[in-house]
């Protein structure tokens, strides 16, 4: 286990170094997200929305931003021919963990940009800020878990970016439904019958299942 953590740390550090030098991934998805929010606010012109609608639209932006950016950690390796170096440098478990954590940090950074900007531009005040932060953090875990394996899968495909979107979205959709339900009350919706709590439980259990499954399947896909 210690060797997995050590290897994952090496992978994570390496990815951060490259990312800070190029800012490929973060700048691309952050700009994508900001552009979508801007487009939405032009269309809606600050009309007041129901809390549930606010929650739904904000998560949809997070989802599509994730789909544009989260294939990057793996597809980058395949495109620049560094896969075999990575395979020699770390065990498959370490690679999975390192890439999962990298996606997670990317997602958290992305959400930290999206939700405040969204709330300000879309005239959608957040009533329970810390609760929204909790839901967003759990959502980031869930989305990273779903995309890490799929990103490794699409490395072997043609037209990787398109196929990634097609393959990742259906796996992420259940999470979208639960996350929207869970975060409605953060935007001020009434919470009848503990709906948020049970939706949040579903997010947690879905993430748990995805993490375990992707952890088990990844070595079988990564080794050739």
């Amino acid at each position: 286990m210690r060797s997995v953590v050590r290897g994952a740390w090496a992978v994570l550090l390496k990815d951060f170094r490259s990312e800070f030098r190029t800012r490929y991934a973060l700048s691309a998805i952050a700009l994508f997200a900001l552009t979508s929010i801007a487009a939405l606010s032009f269309v809606l012109r600050g009309q007041a929305m129901q809390p549930e609608e606010s929650a739904g639209l904000s998560w949809i932006i997070v989802f599509f931003a994730a789909v544009t950016g989260l294939a990057r950690p793996f597809v980058q390796e395949a495109e620049s021919g560094t896969e075999l170096l990575l395979r020699q440098a770390a065990t498959s478990e370490a690679v999975w963990l390192g890439k999962f954590l990298f996606s997670l940090v990317l997602m958290l950074g992305l959400e930290a940009i999206i939700f405040p900007v969204y709330s300000a531009l879309m005239n959608a005040p957040v009533v329970r800020v810390w609760y929204l932060a909790l839901v967003a953090a759990l959502g980031a875990v869930c989305l990273s878990a779903a995309t890490t394996l799929i990103a490794a899968l699409v490395c072997k495909a043609r037209a990787r970016a398109t196929v990634f979107a097609v393959a990742a979205l259906p796996v992420m959709l259940p999470a979208l439904v639960f996350l929207v339900q869970a975060s409605g009350s953060a935007f001020g919706a009434g919470d009848a019958g503990g709906e948020s709590a049970s939706a949040l439980r579903l997010v947690v259990s879905y993430s748990g299942i995805l993490i375990v499954l992707s952890w088990l399947l990844f070595p079988l896909v990564w080794e050739e």
Binding site: R6, A10, V11, R17, S18, S80, G81, T82, L85, A94
Partner: peptide, 27 residues
């Protein structure tokens, strides 16, 4: 350890950083 034409070092890392990553990952 294998050195082959199909194995690229990381372009956005320096020589030293590439080596550090490689050996650190292997413990």
């Amino acid at each position: 350890a294998l050195a082959a034409p199909g194995i690229q070092p990381y372009l956005h890392l320096s020589f030293t950083e590439n080596l550090q990553f490689f050996t650190q990952g292997r413990g």
